[in-house]
């Protein structure tokens, strides 16, 4: 064990892991976090706390994680390169480790253009792969990016994202390999609706033996409405929603669509579970956290191993 991460423990034990996601509020309201954390507690092994997702200003990921931690959850702090240069990033890495947070997910970040401050200056001093590398060197070499040494290293279980659906497809496995080479311990993928394409990507991953060097959690999410499915298909960069998914949702009466969306999610979980090399799922039910227990249960993934305290 490299860290005290519950997620690492579950994965190392060879159990099929479940991570959830928690979006901090666009306000200073701590109750929102507590409420969501309560719902997720006991149903996931760790929960991602997003870092200004879609470039909208929200409560800082590390702060929301600290609040959520009081509810007994293991947290994965997401950290993007959009808003901080390497100095700020390393400072925050030290901070979250010192606060007892065990996991980090390194991301490049959604472009500022998409958020509520499109006029902001993007930083992108380093990219996600470089950030993974920086955090790994801090943990394993006790070194800052500049080469200076530190006394106490940040013990973080390091994650990175992978998108099997973005272009160019051929490069997607290579990019994963680079993230592993840079030091990623686990990978969470983009939300999967096109299971065939995901399976194809996993085949490429296995061909290179990458699944043995990193824990891959397949991203899944329930869809609430046909409109949401259409929006994701058309407007969310790097998202692959096959027409068959939209057709399936359209095929049920209107008041049944959200139920169908939950069923679809459970189906996808059972499909990806069959794929060799998938070590768990990352369930993203953003602003719909209350369905997480149901989905995890229906997928036969309960009970979760109890976390260490």
């Amino acid at each position: 064990m490299k860290t005290r991460s519950n997620l690492e423990r579950v994965l190392e034990a060879g159990q099929f892991a479940v991570t959830g996601e928690l979006g901090p509020p666009q306000s200073a309201d701590s109750q929102v976090i507590r409420r969501k954390a309560k719902i997720l507690g006991g149903h996931v092994d760790a929960v991602n706390v997003t870092d200004g997702q879609t470039a909208v200003v929200r409560m800082a990921s590390w702060a929301a994680s600290l609040i959520g931690k009081e509810e007994g959850l293991d947290h994965i702090v997401q950290m993007t390169c959009r808003d901080r240069n390497r100095i700020a990033l390393q400072m925050d890495v030290l901070g979250i480790a010192a606060l007892g947070i065990n996991n980090i997910l390194c991301l490049t970040g959604d472009h500022q253009k998409f958020g509520n401050h499109p006029m902001a200056r993007g930083v992108y001093d380093v990219d996600s792969i470089q950030l993974v590398n920086i955090v790994r060197d801090m943990r394993d070499e006790k070194k800052f990016q500049c080469g200076d040494e530190m006394a106490v290293e940040p013990c973080l279980f390091i994650g990175a994202a992978a998108n099997p659906f973005a272009d160019p497809f051929e490069f997607r496995v290579t990019r994963l390999a680079k993230k592993i080479a840079a030091g990623a311990d686990f990978i969470q993928t983009q939300i999967i609706y096109n299971v065939d394409k995901f399976a194809e990507w996993m085949e490429g991953v296995r061909d290179r033996g990458l699944h043995e060097r990193v824990k891959i959690l397949a991203g899944v999410a329930p869809i609430k409405s046909v409109g949401a499915a259409r929006y994701m298909k058309a407007r969310v960069p790097g998202m692959d929603v096959p027409d068959s998914v939209i057709a399936r949702l359209q095929g049920v009466p209107k008041d049944q669509v959200s139920r169908e969306g939950i069923k679809l999610c459970v189906d996808i979980i059972s499909q990806v579970r069959e794929i060799e090399g998938v070590a768990g799922i990352h369930l993203m039910a953003i602003e719909w956290e209350e369905v997480v227990p149901e989905i995890v249960g229906a997928a036969g993934l309960l009970p979760r191993p109890s976390p260490l305290t």
């Binding site: 390169c81 472009h111 253009k113 990219d127 792969i129 992978a162 973005a166 160019p168 990019r175």
Partner: peptide, 13 residues
């Protein structure tokens, strides 16, 4: 747009 040195981000489509 992000001056990335390590390949496309997830938004390339």
């Amino acid at each position: 747009s992000k001056h990335l040195l390590n390949g496309p981000c997830g938004g390339s489509q």
